[in-house]
């Protein structure tokens, strides 16, 4: 069983829901982002999503776009992010690490073969050796990645798929058949950090998906506070918090000192407690 699966099993046993956090590697710099993630894990996060910065993050709202820009100012690269992942895995071997990013960085920064533009054994091996448990590739629908899905599963790396409010029933079935780890339900039509409009619709959609699959399903995009997190967790297996955390990181300039770190861990702790 993958660590992602066992994490969800354990949470179910304890009648708790997953808290998944998103931060961008290299924001504000690589070292600090590592400390921030450690702090977040110590404060109660169950799964860590590490954002891989891209020059053209098309699905991100302003807050996360700025984080990508800050990270790229430091020239943060995927190989560096893999080293970061490796170090984290050593310290927290039970916490799943999921990389979230855009397809181009995966196919163009790990591959030594310039004539190949896909995810191959070489890349899978590097990911596996770095303790990466799953990938979320925002701009890679299942149509473009059946082969990639199979390849990753040979290495027990989960390919986590997004389902959105516009996904048809037919597509939902296809997506379920081509995904592993967990499903990521995008709570709204829009970009990260926007506001959720209709809870009832959301709940109905998630419950319908739960009827046809056992893969855990988490809700993300637009969850900014305890109350929303709690509401979402009532009908899902967990929540993803991104923009709200990244927004706090924007103010973190130095090491552990200062209020900003404390604020962040308090926030993460509170969200986690609302999911119990």
């Amino acid at each position: 069983m993958s660590i992602i699966n066992s994490t969800f099993k354990n949470l179910q046993k304890n009648k708790s829901k997953a808290l998944i956090t998103y931060t961008v590697a290299g924001d504000p710099d690589l070292e600090l982002s590592e400390e921030i993630i450690e702090e977040i894990i110590n404060s109660g996060a169950d799964i860590i999503e590490i954002g891989v910065p891209f020059s053209d993050p098309m699905s991100e709202g302003p807050v996360i776009q700025l984080a990508h820009e800050r990270s790229l100012k430091n020239k943060t690269s995927l190989p560096e992010i893999l080293s970061l992942s490796k170090r984290l895995k050593k310290k927290f071997n039970n916490t799943p690490i999921v990389l979230m990013g855009y397809f181009n960085t995966f196919i163009n920064s790990l591959n030594s073969d310039n004539n190949f533009h896909d995810i191959n054994d070489e890349i899978c091996e590097e990911l596996k050796n770095s303790g990466v448990d799953g990938l979320i590739i925002v701009d890679l629908p299942f149509e473009e990645s059946e082969v990639i899905f199979k390849k990753l599963s040979e290495y027990q790396i989960d390919l986590i798929r997004l389902i959105s409010p516009t996904t048809s029933e037919l597509r939902i079935n296809e997506i379920i058949n081509n995904s592993s780890g967990f499903l990521y339900y995008v709570s709204l039509k829009g970009i990260t950090g926007a506001d959720i409009s209709s809870y009832e619709e959301l709940e109905k959609r998630v419950q319908n998906i739960k009827k046809i699959t056992n893969i855990p399903i988490v809700v993300g995009f637009g969850i900014k506070d305890q109350q929303t997190a709690e509401n979402m967790s009532n009908f899902s297996d967990g929540v993803v918090i991104g923009s709200a955390i990244v927004d706090m990181i924007e103010h973190i300039k130095t090491k552990k000192t200062g209020n900003d770190f404390a604020k962040l861990s308090k926030f993460v702790g509170e969200i986690k407690s609302s999911l119990q």
Partner: peptide, 20 residues
């Protein structure tokens, strides 16, 4: 049928846009 010109093309977008 997959929107490809040999290796090129395709549909690399977020799930929300696939239906559109």
């Amino acid at each position: 049928d997959a929107g490809r010109y040999g290796e090129f093309g395709g549909k690399y977008v977020s799930e929300t846009l696939m239906s559109a």
